[in-house]
């Protein structure tokens, strides 16, 4: 893991000895440490139940919502302790995209994009609003498709479009990090491809962490990969190196499809 430690200078996030337990003592993630590189895509892979989503949700403290989940360890965002920030502030700096597209059904497409501002009670001037909506939708390559129906509810959009809308919603706040929890698992291959291309473009401006159960997706778009197994971070390194020459036997078995 030496090569990763060297890169701490460029790290946007530092995960230090993080463990997450459901219902006291029942650990889903044990003692994970890793530095996440700025402006790169980092994939977290592993078989289902390995704790990859749990780790992801520890980063923006989603676990705080559930009283029976305990997070231990430390996470630093740009060197500052995430636990000491208010969750509201932390989550504005770390956007999140969920497994299933979940635009707010009671809001129009435009309102969905600026939902973060609305929910946080930040009032925007009309011009600012339009600018943010247009830029965010353009960033996710949805602008052309929806620019004439901005004031309609987003329910008529396809699954892939809805998911891009949800990414736009996360981008509108200009977060530093975007967390994606299996964002393409409910989408068709064409929509998946579009999202993947989008993520590669987005890493110019954002640091991206992507949880995926699909190792070929990790291979296609990620720069760094983590392999998790039974709550443990087994291996973490450059994606290419890990796929060509895995260091751990379990990683090798996973990548060669011995278990899934």
């Amino acid at each position: 893991m030496d090569e990763i430690n060297v890169e701490i200078k460029d790290a946007v996030l530092e995960i230090k000895n993080v463990s997450v337990a459901y219902n006291k003592g029942n650990y889903a993630v044990t003692n994970v440490s890793a530095a996440i590189k700025r402006n790169r895509i980092t994939a977290i892979m592993g078989p289902s139940g390995c704790g990859k989503s749990t780790l992801l949700r520890a980063i923006n403290r989603m676990h705080d919502l559930y009283p029976n989940i305990v997070t231990e360890g430390q996470i630093l965002l740009n060197g500052a302790d995430a636990a000491k920030m208010s969750t509201m502030m932390l989550r504005r700096k770390i956007g999140m995209v969920f497994q299933r597209p979940n635009p707010f059904p009671n809001m129009s497409i435009a309102d969905n994009v600026i939902a973060g501002y609305k929910l946080n009670g930040i009032s925007l001037k009309k011009s600012e609003k339009e600018e943010i909506i247009e830029k965010s939708l353009q960033d996710v390559a949805l602008w052309k498709e929806v620019k004439d129906s901005l004031n309609q509810k987003g329910t008529f959009l396809s699954g892939g479009q809805q998911q891009r809308l949800c990414i736009a919603r996360a981008l509108a706040f200009q977060p530093e990090v975007i967390l994606l929890d299996e964002p393409t698992s409910s989408l068709d291959p064409i929509s998946t491809k579009k999202i993947e291309e989008l993520l590669i473009e987005l890493k110019e401006q954002y640091s991206i962490i992507l949880v995926t159960h699909n190792m070929s997706q990790a291979a296609r778009i990620s720069d760094y990969s983590m392999f998790m197994y039974l709550g443990e971070l087994v291996e973490y390194g450059k994606t290419k190196e890990m796929f060509i020459n895995p260091k751990d036997k379990r990683t090798d078995e996973y990548l060669t499809g011995k278990f899934s």
């Binding site: 969750t87 956007g95 979940n102 009671n106 009670g121």
Partner: peptide, 27 residues
């Protein structure tokens, strides 16, 4: 009210009050 809608709002930095009035109540 679907949990992922509430989580989406929380992930955008909303407070509980915001979630109640903007996500739970409308739905």
């Amino acid at each position: 009210v679907q949990n992922d809608l509430k989580e989406a709002a929380y992930s955008l930095g909303a407070t509980r009050k915001d979630v109640v009035f903007n996500v739970i109540l409308p739905n």
